[in-house]
Amino acid sequence: MNKIIIGCIAALFCIFNADANLLVTPTRAELDDVSHRSSVFSLVNKGSSTARYNIYFEDKVQLAEGGYRSIDDSKAVLAQFVRYSPRRVTLEPEQGTRVRMALRLPKNTPIGEYRSYIVFHEIPLTPVILNKASDDNADTFSLSVTAYMRISIPVILRVGELNGEVTIGEVTDEKVQTSLNVTINRQGQRSTYGDIELFVENIITGQVHLERVGSVKNAAIYTELNKRIFPVTLSRALKKGTEVIVRYTESKSLKDAKVVEKRIAI
């Protein structure tokens, strides 16, 4: 019985020590029907052993509380609009390759923003064979568990001139002046993503200087949501009543990228 327990513990150890050894760039691809009709992903195997990956599309929805939920659909939205190659790669340690993607947009495609995720899913190099113990009465068994990594990269397609507005909503104290919850509101036909920054003003030799006291990079709100709340950890505790400048700067990859600010006293 002890050997059974040891076998289970070893299997769980394998699960939680899966190495994410694939380096993928960029971490977001953006296509449109005018000037950005292709994209290239660079892959590098940073692990110490040969690895093989299947490459495919899947759809997910963003959740207001954070994270994503996969949609059980037989065909991802962007699968009908793009072609990509290769669909499977095998990489030696420190070896790299490229996956090329090109837009194939059907005529009269409705104006809007479309999004799917390209997935790089590690698969076994050889079939996994489970060996059954020869003695059916033995008090041991062989348990083999392997965790294979998956990396999902958002691919966004914009068709037509899409409008988008963004505002900073409620800002609330989270943990005794060491963390703030910042609400970003989104309206319009396109997603928004960018950086949240928090500043306080300091007077140094008679001049006002902005001190950044917190930030969140790549804060994203996709079209299925109208707002999200982002917790921002402060680099130092702030006194009650301190005025904080909250700034949200949209990614420059967005055609009409905006910068919005709000002053609040915590």
Rank of each mutant, 00 (worst) to 15 (best):
D195I: 06
G194L: 02
N218F: 08
A20N: 12
V89P: 00
H121E: 13
L105C: 02
A10I: 08
N54R: 14
A220D: 07
F41L: 10
T50I: 12
K175E: 14
R263Q: 10
E161W: 02
V82S: 09
S142N: 14
T223A: 06
K75P: 00
Y68P: 00
S70I: 02
Y56N: 06
A257Y: 10
A219K: 01
Y117L: 05
L78H: 03
L78C: 04
P124F: 04
V24I: 15
K258M: 09
T233K: 14
N226M: 07
T97N: 08
V200C: 10
L210F: 14
S70T: 05
V182I: 14
F230C: 01
L234F: 10
S42C: 06
L238S: 04
P26A: 05
V145C: 06
R263Y: 09
D19F: 11
L125C: 09
A257R: 02
R186I: 00
K217E: 14
L43V: 03
R158G: 00
A76S: 15
F41H: 04
L162N: 08
K132E: 12
T50E: 15
G47S: 08
P110M: 13
P26L: 05
Y114Q: 03
A76V: 03
S134F: 11
Y84T: 06
E113F: 03
P231D: 07
Y222P: 00
T109N: 06
L157I: 06
G96H: 07
L31Q: 02
G66I: 04
R69E: 11
I184S: 03
N185S: 02
I9H: 11
E165Y: 04
A76W: 01
E243F: 07
E122K: 13
V24L: 12
T97H: 05
V128S: 04
L130F: 05
I245D: 07
T223R: 05
I6D: 15
S70E: 10
F16Q: 08
D33P: 04
R52T: 11
G160I: 01
T192A: 00
G47F: 09
G47H: 07
S35H: 09
A64S: 06
I264D: 07
H121W: 08
V216P: 01
I153K: 03
T223L: 04
N202E: 15
V259F: 01
V44W: 01
K175Y: 13
E174G: 07
L162H: 08
L143F: 14
L157V: 02
R98V: 13
R190V: 03
I123K: 07
I196V: 10
E161F: 02
A18L: 11
T27A: 12
L43N: 02
T233S: 12
T242C: 12
T183V: 12
D136I: 11
Q207A: 15
E211G: 08
E165F: 05
M101P: 01
D139M: 13
L23W: 13
T27R: 13
I118H: 05
V260T: 04
R212D: 09
I123N: 04
T97G: 08
D135W: 08
I266G: 00
D136A: 13
P110R: 14
A220Y: 07
